[in-house]
Every structure is written in C-alpha cells, then in structure tokens.
Design a protein around this nucleic acid. Structure first.
Length: 112
DNA sequence: TTTATGGCTGTCA
DNA sequence: ATGACAGCCATAA
C-alpha cells in the first residue's frame, strides 16, 4: 500500500455526511493536484470491507463517473441519497449545494 | 525497461 | 448546457 493511497483515503474519510467532492478536489487535498485519475484508481483498489465513503466522490459534472462495473453506479447513487444528497432529474448532484470545500481551500482559480 | 489504459479535468466547438 | 480532444501520471502487463 502506497502512502499516496493513504492520503487519498484520509481525505475521503474527512468528507462529511451528506456532502460530496470531486476527484480533482480530493487529489489536490491529498497533495497530488492533477492526479484525479489516480484518486479513482485508489478508490477502485479500495476493499469493500473498507468504511471509506468512496461514494461521496463524484466527477466534476456532479454525476457518477462511468467505470468498469456499471452496477456500482447505482449503488453509489443509493448511498448518496441515503445520506440526503439530492439528485436532479438527470441523476446528477447539485455541486453548488453539496460540494464539500475544506477550510483553507478556496474554490478553483479565483472563485466561480 | 516500454506501452496501454483509466471511477478525470480543462479547453475548445 | 453537452460532445470531442489532449494532457496528466500512477498502475498493470
């Protein structure tokens, strides 16, 4: 297990309930800006027994990213809904509403 | 060692 | 708003 993964997991674990964030955001918080995909890899390699709220990580569009197993997309959606995350008619999340921004980190590139 | 891929993102149309 | 391209870089073969 690499330390990179540990960092990613640590960041994801900090995501509050009912809140979501993007891969890029997690990557940045983990100190590996630009490695958004590696975040996805880390989550992919994550054991299911893990309590990591991987479902709180979505892509930048605010939707469930397409991955190897489409099945998990539905699961993730259910988990999020269970936490109070609201999806719109297109199955997407209002990032402007539930996006988790940790203290000390402003929005990307001079805001909005 | 190199090559291919991928749970992404930013820019351009 | 979405679709298409390119860049980025760790992991897998």
């Amino acid at each position: 297990m690499s330390d990179l993964y540990e960092r990613i997991y640590a960041v994801v674990r900090r995501i509050p309930r009912g809140r979501v964030t993007t891969y890029g955001q997690v990557a940045r918080l983990a100190g590996m800006a630009g490695h958004a995909r590696q975040v996805g890899y880390a989550l992919h390699a994550l054991p299911e027994k893990s309590r990591l709220p991987w479902h709180r990580v979505v892509n930048r569009r605010g939707e469930i990213s397409r991955r190897s197993i489409p099945q998990a997309e539905a699961i993730q959606k259910l988990l999020l809904e269970d936490e109070g995350v609201v999806f719109d008619g297109k199955g997407r999340i209002r990032l402007d509403r539930v996006l988790w921004i940790p203290s000390g980190f402003s929005r990307r590139s001079s805001g909005r």
